[in-house]
Design a protein around this nucleic acid. Structure first.
Lengths: 185, 185
DNA sequence: AGTGTAATTGAGCGTTCACTCAAAAAGTAA
DNA sequence: TTACTTTTTGAGTGAACGCTCAATTACACT
């Protein structure tokens, strides 16, 4: 998963995969069927891990909006030089951009995952609305898409070679955007 | 350029490039040196074209902020199914995500271009400040990064298979974000 | 038309790609 | 230990990769 996340699908060769898994080609193909199949499982694992991470993060907040704002800041923290992550950008987005216009099955998987993330965000925002954090007439689906797009933008921006504090201030500004959707404020 | 934009660097084979240019390998290598060299020129051409497009678009506005908001809406329009573009996502961002962690020279070029775009945005926002659209204490560099990240998010989101109106409403919400930085409002 | 230069051609180079499969090794059960 | 099944091995497959270069064609100038 880390290798694919770092190098992308085409960028990771079977030789590197053999090394990363400490498996010989025969075993890899007996287990995963193909490079595509292995990537599919890697991306699914990434999505699963990301989902758990978001849920666990939000568990530490009583306010949903506070939790989402904290999540933006957390992403910015993870983008700092000390943190050793395969890539600062999101593997799902990397896959979407790599696979669209070439590998339709892979693009479809990325799309499906992003749909699921979006739906999770809708549920969370609906919850925020019921808790009175959002106005009753808030379009949660629309706000979910805005938040997702901001996340995508933040993590893609983080892939740049910029000062880490630029990423943290960016996360802060995106968090401030969410504030404008709070009731009263 | 269109082929690389659509398929990415690794995704475009020399065979496809020969077809797209209607040139045989020898001529291609005599002209561009290598596949890398050709890609470098393609990306530079893309950046140049994008710069011209932004400048021409803004020429139709007396207010810089109105112009930038219009630009977001314009991007959303270009993402509609009728428009035949190689990719709805930005070629520079696609390159950044593909090349980081594998091709450092290519990643550096993408970074350099994004730096230049950022600087252009800073200049524009400084102009908006002088025209009284932004508060005197506005951090234009920071706001430029926010706008760029939103653009990246919008165009990457547009690569998804969603309803076109979701992209237009997303652009609208991002435009509304800019409104919060206007003086008075 | 004749001559020198520049540009183009395409067969084919070595390499790397994802992937296969007969043989060997490891595991299981009596 | 023996017989059987499952798993692993790694040399090797054909295909596709980026790229080269001697031969050819097109061009420029007298």
């Amino acid at each position: 998963m880390n290798l694919f996340w770092e190098k992308g699908f085409a960028g990771a060769s079977m030789k590197q995969i053999e090394l990363a898994l400490d498996m010989r080609p025969g075993s890899i193909y007996a287990t995963f069927g193909s490079k595509d199949g292995l990537f599919r499982e890697a991306l699914a694992a990434y999505a699963e891990r990301g989902g758990v991470e978001l849920r666990e993060h939000l568990a530490g907040y009583s306010s949903v909006l506070d939790g989402l704002q904290g999540y933006l800041r957390r992403i910015a923290q993870q983008s700092k030089p000390g943190e050793a992550t395969p890539s600062r950008a999101c593997m799902i987005v990397k896959t979407l951009l790599e696979a669209s216009n070439s590998n339709s099955a892979m693009a479809e998987q990325a799309n499906t995952i992003l749909d699921a993330v979006e739906q999770s965000l809708v549920q969370l925002l609906e919850q925020a609305k019921m808790q009175g954090e959002l106005a009753a007439d808030t379009d949660c689906a629309r706000l979910a898409r805005l938040f997702q797009a901001q996340l995508i933008g933040l993590r893609s921006f983080a892939q740049r070679e910029t000062h880490p504090e630029h990423v943290t201030s960016l996360a802060e500004d995106m968090a401030a955007t969410l504030d404008h959707y709070r009731v009263r404020h």
